[in-house]
Simulated scan of single mutants.
Amino acid sequence: MKLIEAYIYEVTRRLPEKLRNDIALELRSTIEDMLPDHYSEEEEMEVLSKLGDPARLAASYRDTPMHLIGPKVYDAYFWTLKMIIPWAILITVLVHVVETIVLFSGEESVLSVVIKSFGIIIANIIHVLIQTFFWVTIVFVFIERIGMAKSDGSLTKYGTEWTPEQLKTVLVISKKKVIPRGEVIFSLVWTAIWVVLYFNADHLAGVYRSMDGEGLQMVMRALNQDVLMSYLPIVLPFALLEIGLALFKWKERQWTMRLVTVNAVLKVFSVVVLTIIATNPTLLNEAMIPYLATELNINMSSVNNFIDWAVWTVITVIIVTAVIEIYDSYRKAKA
């Protein structure tokens, strides 16, 4: 029965959601009709072998044909794209961020560099996606037209023709528990971004003004970088743990209680570290409060109160967000 459920899952996951339940019922009924009352695993595999590759069977249920790539290699082709594209995007972003930091000369305002870099990253991602799609398509067209020209089978993501034996390795994942690949990639990108921001906080956070028509220039730094760097022995391991958690999610592919526990511990740890850093009275540039008081024409006590309110508001929002994320992951794991 486990092989049957895996086979049905492999077929229906490739279909539009509105068709999955009906086709699952129909397919289960068909398989049961083909089996005797008391069947062995060998008989089960024989029936599934007659039904053939789940990818090709799913293709027969679709209303629209697959014109770009033939059914022999379509499943392997689509799986390859899903595996390559997220990593291509991640590498593109990281390479540009590192290159921008290394080549930054200080002649241009950091804010201008960030805005310009955002546009360059988007353009680079589009270019990489076009190149990835083109070359992967060319490779699979070659495989189908030449490599599998004499084969009646279809190529799977394992690089071999499909057999019922492969169903033993299929992990049937509930839709409620699944962790999207995009979520994992976003976690890695976000970790890279906040690490860069942490090391360059004094160049980014501050008061900006337009100077002599040359764009925005920082006129007052908001943070004390030396204080931030004093927390590096805590922050750096935390960044590595975040990367490890993202890779753990990629491996598990679904929310489990073990993953929920690791995620919750890391969330709590991040909130505690953030609170300690944000509430350090020496984190703020000591010249910032008098500067704001003068510019806004208010007393320094009011500026201090506003900053304290802003810090604790941000901390509260982060705590609430962390609690919601922990609860949501727990709910998914128990689904």
Rank of each mutant, 00 (worst) to 15 (best):
M1I: 07
L3Y: 11
I4H: 05
E5R: 07
A6M: 04
T12F: 00
L15S: 00
L15M: 05
L15W: 00
E17P: 07
N21P: 01
A24R: 05
L27K: 03
I31K: 04
I31M: 05
E32R: 15
L35C: 09
Y39L: 04
S40G: 11
E43A: 12
L51Q: 02
G52D: 00
R56I: 11
A58R: 00
S60P: 03
S60R: 11
R62S: 15
D63S: 13
D63T: 05
T64M: 08
L68M: 13
L68D: 09
K72G: 03
Y74R: 02
Y74M: 07
W79A: 15
K82H: 10
M83S: 13
M83F: 13
L90C: 07
V93L: 10
L94Q: 12
G106Y: 12
G106K: 10
E107M: 13
S109T: 09
L111W: 12
V114T: 06
F118S: 12
F118M: 11
G119T: 13
I120R: 14
I120S: 13
I122W: 15
A123D: 07
V128Y: 03
I130K: 09
W135M: 12
W135L: 11
T137S: 09
E144K: 08
S151T: 06
S151C: 11
D152Q: 11
G153A: 10
L155G: 03
G159R: 06
G159E: 04
Q166P: 01
L167C: 10
K168W: 08
T169M: 12
V170P: 01
I173D: 05
K175P: 01
K176S: 14
K176G: 07
V178N: 01
P180M: 06
G182Y: 07
E183T: 08
V184H: 01
I185A: 10
I185Q: 06
S187D: 11
W194T: 05
L197R: 05
F199I: 04
N200V: 12
A201Y: 02
D202L: 02
D202Y: 00
H203A: 14
A205G: 04
R209S: 12
R209E: 13
S210T: 04
S210Y: 10
M211Y: 12
D212N: 12
M218R: 09
M218P: 13
M218A: 09
M220G: 05
A222P: 07
D226T: 14
Y231D: 03
L232P: 07
V235C: 05
L236I: 15
L240M: 10
L241D: 01
K249H: 09
W250A: 11
M257G: 08
M257P: 04
M257D: 14
N263E: 12
N263K: 09
V265P: 06
V265F: 14
K267N: 14
S270P: 02
V273W: 03
L274V: 14
L284T: 07
L284Q: 03
L284P: 03
N285Q: 02
N285T: 01
N285C: 07
A287C: 02
M288K: 06
Y291Q: 03
L292S: 04
E295W: 14
N299W: 08
N299Q: 11
M300W: 01
S301A: 15
S302Y: 14
F306G: 15
W309C: 02
W312E: 03
I318T: 09
V320E: 00
T321F: 15
V323D: 03
V323N: 00
E325M: 13
E325F: 05
R331S: 10
A333L: 10
